[in-house]
Amino acid sequence: MGWLTNPWTLLVLGGICEMGWALGFKYVRSDAPWWQHAAVLAALAASMALLWVAMKSLPAGTAYAVWTGIGALGVATIGILVFNEPVTHLRILFLALILIGIIGLKAVSGET
């Protein structure tokens, strides 16, 4: 199976697209140019489509948990690094737990 058809690759790409639409929901203002709104909608559609395709091969619960985990971890990290959102020891701890959960779900899935 090529890397572009690997369900885990598709799931990671879907999680990255989820980061795009989630950040777009937060930071694209209502008076932004039309193309910014179109980009948010495209990221939303791509994210859902990639999750859907990945779920054809992966358990639904695992795929959904990993997809949302990637999105949550990525948006929180970008918020900290780019948008100066608060960073505390507990926030870092819980983000690390999300990462551990993603890695753990991949490790126990038995899929390559």
Rank of each mutant, 00 (worst) to 15 (best):
T77P: 04
A32I: 06
G2A: 00
L10A: 00
T112E: 15
Y27V: 03
W35Q: 14
A72E: 05
A43C: 15
E18C: 11
M55S: 13
V28H: 03
V82Q: 06
A45F: 15
M55P: 02
M48K: 10
V87Y: 01
L44C: 13
L81H: 01
T77S: 15
I103M: 12
L99K: 02
K56Q: 06
A96L: 08
A46G: 12
A76I: 02
A65Y: 04
P86M: 01
G2M: 03
W34C: 14
G14N: 06
W21E: 13
L90D: 04
M19Y: 02
G61C: 09
M48N: 12
G20A: 11
G104A: 11
L105S: 10
A49V: 07
W67E: 08
F25S: 12
V66K: 01
L95P: 01
T112I: 06
V75E: 05
Y27N: 09
F83E: 05
P7Y: 05
A63E: 04
L41K: 09
G24Q: 07
L93G: 05
L11R: 00
G20N: 09
Q36G: 14
T77M: 03
S30M: 08
L97V: 10
K106E: 10
L4G: 08
P59W: 05
G79L: 00
A32V: 07
G110A: 09
W52M: 08
L11Q: 00
Y27E: 07
I80T: 00
R91P: 00
P7H: 00
L97K: 06
H89W: 04
W52E: 07
V82G: 02
W67Y: 15
A39R: 10
K26M: 05
F25D: 10
I102A: 07
L81W: 04
G61D: 12
S57R: 09
R29W: 01
F94P: 01
H37K: 14
F83I: 04
L51V: 06
L90E: 03
L23G: 06
N6V: 03
M48R: 12
E111I: 08
G2D: 07
K106I: 05
T88S: 15
I16M: 10
I98N: 00
A39K: 08
S47Y: 07
M48T: 10
L73S: 13
V12I: 11
G71R: 06
L41E: 13
W52D: 07
I102Y: 11
V82N: 03
T5E: 06
L73Q: 06
A42V: 15
E85W: 00
L50M: 09
Q36T: 05
A76G: 04
W35E: 14
Y27T: 01
L50A: 11
G79F: 01
Q36W: 15
I102Q: 08
P86F: 05
